[in-house]
């Protein structure tokens, strides 16, 4: 079965205040579809709601209107088993590289956590961790380190490697390179391209860097005042 991730008529309104309610509309009637092996670029200035839309698609936040469909089914109505599958197959990679790993867990612990989540027998953990580092082009010295002791690019790669353990079909990439150095950004982008080619991943690339989006995406949209339009 070919997985699919689709958003239909998504809207998000933030409400604040108990007595005097004030409303802020972030997203209005947004529909999009991610396909395997394809990259959808999403651009917009900061504060335009790009990240919120990403989180809604990843099921981390609830829209106030519209539905997110995974394999044709509304993710709010999935059975537990189907939701677990959705949770594994749709992943989000976050912007700030230093913050995407728990500062008080060593890289080894961070990887072991995910292996435990996947119920992989303990005997294989060591080997799997080393595999992961190798795939990501990282040295095995890193296992003992803490996120504060390695560079931003290395953090970002460990975070991405953890996500890949789940074998996702779709990844929401929220500004994956904007905090990275030029050469590290180039490495990250080529790694993402390789992964897409080898595993047929579908990406939603959220970024304000038009160069990056143009380089990566097959189709580009711009988010402006809560509405989405294709880039001319």
């Amino acid at each position: 079965m070919l997985a699919s991730l689709k958003a239909v008529g998504i809207g998000k309104v933030y409400e604040s205040g108990l007595i005097f309610k004030s409303q802020k509309t972030i997203l209005q009637n947004i529909s999009l579809e991610l396909e395997e092996g394809q990259t959808l670029g999403l651009m917009g200035v900061s504060g335009s709601g790009k990240t919120t839309l990403g989180k809604i698609l990843a099921g981390l936040e609830r829209p106030t209107a519209g539905r997110v469909l995974f394999g044709g089914k509304d993710i709010q109505r999935l059975h537990k088993k189907e939701f677990t599958l959705f949770r594994r197959q749709v992943q989000m990679v976050f912007q700030d590289p230093e913050g995407s790993l728990n500062p008080r867990k060593s890289i080894e612990e961070a990887i072991h956590d995910v292996l435990g989540l996947l119920k992989i027998p303990k005997g294989e953990w060591r080997e799997r961790s080393l595999d992961l580092l190798e795939t990501m082009g990282l040295s095995d010295e890193l296992l003992c380190r803490y996120p504060g002791q390695i560079s931003g690019g290395q953090n970002q790669r460990v975070a991405l490697g953890r996500v890949l353990l789940l074998n996702p079909r779709f990844m929401i990439l929220d500004e994956p390179t904007s905090a990275l150095d030029l050469s590290v950004q180039a490495q990250m982008l080529s790694l993402l391209k390789d992964l897409q080619r080898d595993r047929g991943l579908g990406y939603l690339l959220i970024s304000h860097q038009s160069d990056v989006v143009k380089y990566m995406a097959h189709e580009i949209f711009i988010l402006e005042e809560g509405r989405m339009k294709p880039m001319s």
Binding site: G137, S183, A186, V212, Y215
Partner: peptide
């Protein structure tokens, strides 16, 4: 030269290895 090749207009050519 390698650093300049990482620029968008040169197509984000990565430098192998890390700093």
């Amino acid at each position: 030269a390698a650093l300049l090749n990482c620029l968008p207009e040169k197509g984000f050519q990565p430098i192998p290895g890390s700093s």
